[in-house]
Design a protein around this nucleic acid. Structure first.
Lengths: 206, 206
DNA sequence: TATATTAGTAATTGCTTACTAACATAAACC
DNA sequence: GGTTTATGTTAGTAAGCAATTACTAATATA
């Protein structure tokens, strides 16, 4: 009946993972730029100095967050992109998977915005930009498959379609930030997706 | 032949306007959260202490920026919304006017993102959120006009269409932040706009 | 069991921040 | 022409920041 009390001492690996999640949890509540090492320390129940037992500096924490993001979001998108033989259904699955991921991790869009605003040479921004590059690549490939099967406009520009795809998610995220609640956008999702489908589909008979 | 040298001493009104523009100029280069009163002072050629001769505190500066934004962007959108008798053409004019405004003031999207991430009770966020509310209202009214004239889907959900409209601009802005240059998105604009038109139009014969 | 390593703390470092106070000077007014 | 007022400077303040230090306790290892 002894409770499995967690040891107060944790390995560096475990603490790093804790702090990455702490940053995302804090980013859901406040601007990423205003998150301090003291905030992070309190969030995981440590003193401020202990943070630097597990990370050489603050930037290393942000880089770790960016790496976690890539390692979590991209497989999600990749899986959805290959979930069926119908490219349009796969696109819809990416859309839904991405939005669900954002709702479960409300700090993520804010973190991405924050990093994209950094100077170009920042390694964390390069990491995030690289991830979005890969994301776009996946979208474009699915759109090309759809075109090859005659499911979308033969004249479709995949780059524009990918930009609008990401933009449609951005628009929903912005609505959520406006309202303040991430769950409140749920009813808007099908409407926006229907419009996106009409935009790219060959035969818009909906 | 005497050069019309500007007096070193300026009125508070003039300095306030200068500093609002300074904030936007700085926001084009760096994260709004990292802009200090020293940065602003140097940008307008004053000492840091002089900033507080014209503003009671830093938040008042940001509020002034938000007010300038509303007073500048909304008339632009309003004018475009009534520029012709064709609602779809008016929508296109809003789209182009907004993107031109963003290209001329690259700090604006970053400022808006920055403010939307603030806690809900922040007066500056409320100001920005209110402006976006009005913006959405204008869009929805134009979309309703288009529906009444049978130019768009009779089943169109105006709220979703407005979200996708703003999202399509967001997507382009995000591309610009990724690339680093605001002008580089120019070739993407017509493609994205064509897709948006197809999404809402009754007869997509393009 | 003795020793080395790892993960923690509290206190302090140098620096930056928004904001203020004392003083200076240009323009406006009587 | 002298006084007042508005706009400027310089030199402060207290608070908060990332990062370091000296030290301690827990854990692994020989």
């Amino acid at each position: 009946m002894k409770a499995a009390t967690v040891s107060l001492r944790q390995s560096t690996e475990a603490r790093q993972a804790e702090m990455v999640q702490a940053v995302l949890a804090l980013a859901a509540r406040q601007e990423p730029a205003s998150i301090t090492t003291t905030h992070i320390a309190h969030e995981v129940g440590l003193s401020q100095g202990a943070v630097f037992r597990h990370f050489p500096n603050k930037q290393a924490i942000w880089l770790n967050v960016a790496e976690w993001l890539e390692a979590t979001l991209l497989p999600l998108v990749q899986t959805a992109a290959k979930s069926s033989s119908d490219p349009l259904e796969n696109l819809s699955n990416i859309f839904r998977a991405h939005l669900q991921f954002v709702q479960e991790n409300p700090g993520v869009p804010r973190f991405i915005f924050h990093e994209l605003q950094q100077p170009a040479d920042s390694p964390v921004k390069q990491q995030v930009a690289g991830m979005l590059q890969v994301y776009s690549g996946i979208l474009i490939r699915v759109l090309q498959q759809a075109k090859a099967q005659g499911l979308v406009l033969p004249t479709l520009d995949e780059r524009s379609a990918a930009t609008l795809f990401i933009g449609s998610i951005q628009g929903l995220v912005m609505q959520a930030m406006l309202i303040g609640s991430c769950a409140a956008i749920q009813p808007l999702i099908p409407g926006v997706w229907n419009l996106y489908c009409r935009a790219i589909r060959e035969e818009p008979n909906a």
